[in-house]
């Protein structure tokens, strides 16, 4: 092996920094998973909207007169189904991409990304269940957006940087929705449906 010193120390250092950064990132997150999660989110919104309107109610009535218990449980069931389907589809597309690129789904970066995501989402989910328990329904939709956004910004250190900005948008949307509570469901549709589709399409185009 010959030892020609061809590179400058500055270049070596920046190469090292870049490699260290890349080794902590999980890059198999697929754009398609964003698009599918967005479409499922839209379907969930339509289902909830249908249930509410066939009962002659609106999300804006929530602050004064919360929904009856059976209606609340039905909406909760639809929301949980939507969440499960969205996570399932995101997982499917991500593992498909991981297999294609040969990255392990159980690598350290992947585990880091998952834990960073799971903690805010599960604490937010728990808080929302407690809010439902206390019949403070009008805050639930906006707060799911805020906690989901926090989960994304936390996770973004371990994956594509674009995830950070998606998170910021979700947080902003959620906080805005808290201020005008009557429109929570609309914001929910914007955050989980429209934003996901836009973001997923952008990611897909960039990293296909």
């Amino acid at each position: 092996m010959q030892h020609h010193r061809t590179s400058k120390p500055e270049e070596d250092i920046s190469h090292i920094r870049q490699m260290m950064e890349r080794s902590t990132s999980f890059l198999s997150l697929s754009g398609l998973s964003g698009i599918s999660a967005g479409l499922i989110g839209m379907a969930g919104f339509l289902a909830v909207y249908y249930i509410i309107s066939t009962n002659g109610l609106g999300y804006s009535d929530l602050k004064e007169n919360p929904y009856s218990v059976p209606l609340t449980l039905r909406i909760l069931a639809v929301a949980c189904l939507t969440l499960a389907a969205a996570l399932g589809s995101a997982f499917y597309f991500t593992q498909r991409k991981a297999r294609k690129t040969g990255q392990s789904l159980w690598s350290k970066p992947a585990r880091n990304a998952l834990t960073a995501f799971a903690l805010p989402v599960s604490s937010g989910g728990l808080l929302c269940l407690i809010l439902i328990w206390h019949r403070l329904l009008f805050l639930v939709a906006p707060l799911t957006l805020v906690f989901y956004g926090l989960a994304l910004t936390g996770m973004s250190r371990h994956t594509h940087r674009e995830v950070y900005w998606l998170g910021i948008c979700e947080i902003a949307l959620g906080i805005f929705a808290c201020m005008i509570p009557g429109y929570g469901l609309i914001f929910w549709m914007l955050g989980f449906g429209v934003l996901h589709i836009v973001y997923g399409a952008a990611l897909y185009k960039k990293y296909k």
Binding site: D12, H15, S23
Partner: peptide, 11 residues
Amino acid sequence: LGIMSVLTVSG
């Protein structure tokens, strides 16, 4: 350099 950088972070 790359191999050592990655391993320094991930073990």
